[in-house]
């Protein structure tokens, strides 16, 4: 049976609820404005339909009062919706206290979802209800866009850099992940699932004792590169094997490069005086393009790691540096 319901997509996040309220309001007011304007036009078309070829018409080139009022009315209407939309958007993108962080890597044509404990799943995202979730996302090949319709949020994933998607699920259930940015042959098959669990079930799931239906569906994929290590442990392993420690300490001492202690989330001053926030993208850029943003007081001697680290390994190093903040 074909469904012809107008609004069949449930809302399952804080953003989703805000969207529904916003859309309902703008839809009703937009409809009134549209029907009002067009209704008058169609009424005129009937009322002033040509009666003879010699109809006399008045000469009305303008009416400043009507023109001013319509411009003023439209401007107020637009301004209100702009401000409302900006406030909701600001709330959507801003980092929250106590976020649960998960890494996402998009690739043709699936999603790799990587947890702090080192487990990686394909196309399956498990999150606790009523927690702020932060997805730190990137792409292995072309552009993708991580879209959860029930949450009314999406963000592109871009090769070579991180983007962030934030949401707060507020209903336990199973929802959809779509790829919204065209990415080639199987774009429409790049579909995943979000499982929103109660906070207790989520903890059980993390501890490996969750007995619900989802447990069978979320088998770790073959590309589980964590080897049983958490992201931070794997990052520490890389810190040693790639000999990062010869230049960067973790205890605050300064060697050839800045120490990792307290680095993440701090404001660093670059040569030339610009100040920037040390976030995921800054760390990625410093690994790939170390000469681009050199911290003041250090000489530009770091070699590039472009092509030597996978996206997963970069995620692990970022997690390690984050842990030292």
């Amino acid at each position: 049976m074909l469904s012809l319901s107008l609004n069949f997509l449930p809302s399952a996040s804080v953003s989703g609820d805000k969207f529904m309220l916003y859309f309902t309001t703008i839809f009703i007011i937009g409809t009134i404005l549209f029907v009002g304007t067009l209704g008058v036009g169609i009424y005129f078309a009937f009322k002033y339909k040509r009666k003879s070829d010699n109809d006399e018409t008045p000469y009305i080139p303008h009416n400043y009062l009507v023109e001013f009022l319509s411009v003023f009315g439209i401007s107020v209407w637009v301004a209100i919706f702009f401000i409302w939309g900006w406030r909701d958007y600001k709330d959507f993108i801003s980092p929250k206290m106590d976020e649960y962080e998960i890494n996402v890597i998009g690739q043709q044509w699936n999603w790799q979802i990587q947890y702090a404990n080192g487990k990686t799943f394909t196309n399956e995202l498990i999150v606790p209800v009523d927690r702020h979730i932060h997805l730190a996302m990137t792409s292995k090949d072309v552009l993708h866009s991580f879209f959860i319709p029930e949450f009314r949020v999406k963000m592109d994933t871009i090769p070579g850099q991180y983007t962030s998607l934030r949401f707060t699920p507020n209903k336990v259930g199973t929802y959809t992940i779509y790829c919204a940015e065209y990415c080639g042959t199987s774009h429409s098959k790049m579909i995943g699932k979000v499982y929103v669990l109660s906070q207790k079930d989520f903890q059980d799931w993390l501890d490996g004792v969750y007995q619900g239906e989802l447990a069978q569906e979320t088998k770790p994929s073959n590309q589980d590169s964590g080897n049983g290590m958490t992201l931070v442990e794997a990052g520490e392993h890389l810190y040693r094997s790639k000999t990062c420690y010869t230049c960067h300490t973790t205890n605050g001492d300064t060697l050839i490069g800045p120490s990792f202690k307290g680095l993440f989330g701090s404001e660093v001053e670059l040569i030339g005086g610009t100040k920037i926030l040390a976030d995921e993208n800054y760390i990625r850029e410093s690994l790939m393009d170390p000469m681009k943003k050199v911290v003041k007081g250090f000489s530009p001697t770091m070699p590039t790691y472009r092509g030597m680290l996978t996206d997963t390994e970069i995620n692990q190093i970022v997690a390690f540096i984050k842990a030292k903040r």
């Binding site: 953003s15 969207f19 916003y22 937009g30 637009v78 879209f147």
Partner: peptide, 14 residues
């Protein structure tokens, strides 16, 4: 106008 609104476009985009 609906699409120009930032919060709504997070859903509508693409």
């Amino acid at each position: 106008i609906m699409l120009g609104v930032l919060s709504a476009d997070m859903h509508f985009h693409d």
